[in-house]
Simulated assay, not measured.
Amino acid sequence: MRGINALTLLAMLLLIIVSGTVFFRHVEGWSWLDSYFFTVVTLSTVGYGELVPASPLGKIGTTIFILLGLGVFAVTIQQFGAYAVRKREEHTEWLIARLGHTDKHHRGDDKPANDPERPET
């Protein structure tokens, strides 16, 4: 991956999830599972609304978490999407070259470059 390293992005994402889980566990007093669930649901912007921070610190922490976490989450998704598009483009270019699509324009005939009847030159 170009730009930000994939491991760096995944580590940042993991850090955000772990931090959010620990924060909500201690500030709101939720179970570890509920804290983790709220963290992931909030970070992914799904927002079921089953859990809502009740304390002022929890509400402030949630807004900060959303701003920081959503940025990291969005960059991670964008980088992996860009990587997938690049790989798709590389594969398409390889296929076009392999099939001889660009070569027949240079030769002036309709035979593909990989024609088994065509002698090697």
Rank of each mutant, 00 (worst) to 15 (best):
Arg2Tyr: 03
Arg2Asn: 14
Ile4His: 08
Thr8Trp: 12
Thr8Asn: 13
Leu9Asn: 14
Ala11Gly: 14
Leu13Ile: 01
Ile17Pro: 02
Gly20Leu: 04
Thr21Trp: 02
Val22Pro: 02
Phe23Cys: 07
Phe23Ser: 05
Phe24His: 05
Arg25Glu: 01
Glu28Trp: 04
Gly29Gln: 05
Gly29Val: 04
Trp30Tyr: 07
Trp30Glu: 06
Ser31Phe: 02
Leu33Asn: 12
Asp34Lys: 03
Ser35Val: 02
Tyr36Arg: 09
Tyr36Gln: 03
Phe37Val: 03
Phe37Gln: 06
Phe38Gly: 10
Phe38Glu: 06
Thr39Lys: 14
Val41Pro: 01
Thr42His: 14
Leu43Gly: 12
Thr45Ser: 15
Val46Ser: 13
Gly47Gln: 15
Gly47Thr: 05
Tyr48Ile: 00
Glu50Ala: 09
Glu50Arg: 08
Glu50Cys: 04
Leu51Asp: 08
Leu57Gln: 15
Lys59Leu: 05
Lys59Tyr: 00
Ile60Thr: 05
Gly61Ser: 04
Gly61Gln: 09
Thr63Gly: 13
Phe65His: 07
Leu68Cys: 14
Gly69His: 13
Gly69Phe: 03
Leu70Val: 03
Gly71Lys: 11
Gly71Asp: 13
Val72Gln: 12
Phe73Ile: 00
Val75Ala: 15
Thr76Asp: 09
Ile77Asn: 15
Gln78Ser: 09
Gln78Val: 00
Gln79Pro: 01
Phe80Asp: 14
Phe80Gly: 11
Ala82Glu: 15
Ala82Ile: 08
Arg86Gly: 12
Lys87Pro: 00
Arg88Thr: 01
His91Val: 00
Thr92Trp: 05
Thr92Pro: 00
Glu93Gly: 05
Trp94Phe: 07
Trp94Gly: 09
Trp94Pro: 03
Ile96Met: 11
Ala97His: 15
Arg98Cys: 00
Arg98Ile: 00
Arg98Gly: 04
Gly100Arg: 06
Gly100Gln: 10
His101Val: 05
Asp103Pro: 02
His105Ile: 00
His105Leu: 09
His105Tyr: 11
Asp110Thr: 07
Lys111Gln: 11
Pro112Trp: 02
Ala113Trp: 09
Asn114Met: 02
Pro116Thr: 02
Glu117Ser: 08
Arg118Ala: 02
Arg118Gly: 01
Arg118Ile: 00
Glu120Trp: 12
Thr121His: 09
